[in-house]
Amino acid sequence: MSELNDKLLGVLPGKSKISRFRPVAYIVPPLLAILFQIYVPRFASYLSYLELPLLVTVYFALMRRQPVAGAVIGCLIGLAQDALSQHPLGMQGIVKTLVGYFAASISMRFDVENVALRFILSFFFFVFHQLFLWVQGRGLHGMSMDLQAPQTIIFAFLNAVVAAPLFLVLDRLKSEEL
């Protein structure tokens, strides 16, 4: 049990590393994630539940392990999403800023290479993302949005399922670890 805790908490040597990426890696995956969200649901509407920009935000925040970097990455991806949506600029931006910040903060305490932990964090951050969007939509904009809890939990699970292999693919973009 203590070994598992040690593994998850990343106290074993060589686990708490900061990953670095090439500059292009910060541009291409988020852009592809946004394009995927724009284009693919046209032909496969059942894939509209996938929140790939959120997963990319979570990944970079977790791997960078720097709250400032996580918040900035989340802010930029969120604003890009806002610009391509009908919502006011800042709605997704604020939520993803917070997601990036908290994901990076959490990553300093856990071993984020662990697939199970990645799954749990993806699930948690999707629920957090949807919940905060709902609060913001109702509180700040007076939108008549409904939070459908069962649907959100199912979508969170499906996103987490997708996140596990996606993070493994994104791991290949790492240039070095410090």
């Binding site: 969200q37 929140e51 920009p53 391509l84 997704q92």
Partner: peptide
């Protein structure tokens, strides 16, 4: 030519 961003948009 495309859909808006956001889950289930």
């Amino acid at each position: 030519i495309g859909t808006g961003t956001g889950a289930n948009s």
